[in-house]
Computed example of a mutant assay.
Amino acid sequence: MIEIGEGNVSERAREARYEALAGWAARQGVSHVATAHHADDQVETFLMRLNRGSGVAGLAGIRKRARISALEVIRPLLDWRRAELAELVEARGWMSVDDPSNRDPRYDRARIRAALIEADWLDPEAIAASAAHLADADTALDWMADRIMAGTVRAVGDRLALPADLPRALALRVVARLLGQIGEGAPRGSEIARLCDALAAGKVATLAGVVARPGKGVWRFGKAPERRG
């Protein structure tokens, strides 16, 4: 029996929710869906990912705009605190929905939420601002990676060659794009990082149907040969 970890369950539940929302939006002819993510959600997400050793993209946290499961999502309340929104809801006489899993200590987010109540020395607004700064850095890395793909990556025979001396953060972005262009599936960031580390150590590596080989000043990427049954 395969035991599915908490992260897998949470991620699959999230994907299912957005897929359901995308289906509803398509049937209703709705182009955008707004969610009620707020500043406290941003802080919890930042700390969860910090505790997992996430990189810039992960630490950038929740974005104000995103495309998820063919759905355009906007989050207009990210600058608001949970308590402020609760006061507004109560003043309007609206009934809020309570999800019991938000208090279930089996989940990272619930434990972090409980710890934040006790950690009054932390400044949630400052943490949320740091996530916003990292989102800016993430956008800058994407901007540069797109330009490297367009102007620096070159074809060498049936392979694509990438300079081996790129800063690691940029190399990870560009390699992810190369794998998406010629490979199969969508590897996780940790898998791409291990591939880059192997290349930097002078080793041949395979991921998502792509074989990557280190060379003199370059890394070369091509389709991996089909496995014989």
Rank of each mutant, 00 (worst) to 15 (best):
residue 183 G to S: 09
residue 5 G to P: 09
residue 159 R to V: 00
residue 139 T to G: 03
residue 60 A to M: 05
residue 119 A to Y: 05
residue 171 A to P: 04
residue 141 L to I: 11
residue 222 G to L: 02
residue 204 V to H: 13
residue 55 G to W: 05
residue 136 D to V: 11
residue 103 R to A: 15
residue 148 I to T: 05
residue 57 A to G: 09
residue 125 E to V: 00
residue 93 G to A: 08
residue 99 D to R: 00
residue 181 Q to G: 08
residue 212 A to L: 05
residue 41 D to P: 14
residue 188 R to V: 06
residue 159 R to A: 15
residue 160 L to T: 03
residue 60 A to L: 06
residue 64 K to Y: 01
residue 103 R to K: 06
residue 96 S to R: 02
residue 22 A to G: 14
residue 43 V to H: 09
residue 153 V to S: 07
residue 167 P to A: 08
residue 69 S to G: 05
residue 120 D to F: 01
residue 174 V to A: 13
residue 179 L to R: 03
residue 79 D to M: 02
residue 81 R to T: 12
residue 150 A to Y: 08
residue 77 L to Q: 07
residue 201 A to Q: 13
residue 149 M to Q: 11
residue 168 R to D: 14
residue 158 D to K: 02
residue 203 K to T: 12
residue 8 N to C: 05
residue 23 G to I: 00
residue 206 T to A: 13
residue 23 G to C: 04
residue 120 D to N: 01
residue 40 D to A: 01
residue 32 H to R: 14
residue 160 L to S: 11
residue 96 S to F: 09
residue 207 L to R: 12
residue 21 L to I: 02
residue 88 L to V: 14
residue 83 A to H: 07
residue 215 G to K: 00
residue 191 E to M: 00
residue 93 G to W: 10
residue 219 W to Q: 06
residue 34 A to M: 12
residue 4 I to R: 15
residue 26 A to M: 09
residue 148 I to F: 08
residue 48 M to D: 15
residue 144 M to Q: 11
residue 107 Y to G: 07
residue 102 N to T: 12
residue 109 R to S: 12
residue 11 E to Y: 12
residue 223 K to H: 13
residue 44 E to L: 03
residue 81 R to D: 15
residue 139 T to V: 04
residue 142 D to G: 12
residue 202 G to V: 02
residue 165 D to Q: 06
residue 100 P to E: 11
residue 8 N to T: 11
residue 97 V to L: 13
residue 38 H to N: 15
residue 56 V to S: 09
residue 151 G to M: 01
residue 81 R to N: 12
residue 219 W to C: 06
residue 41 D to K: 11
residue 227 R to P: 04
residue 167 P to T: 02
residue 168 R to G: 01
residue 58 G to S: 03
residue 198 A to S: 14
residue 78 L to K: 00
residue 228 R to P: 13
residue 113 R to I: 00
residue 186 A to I: 12
residue 82 R to I: 01
residue 116 L to P: 03
residue 10 S to Y: 03
residue 119 A to F: 07
residue 136 D to A: 10
residue 75 R to K: 12
residue 67 R to W: 10
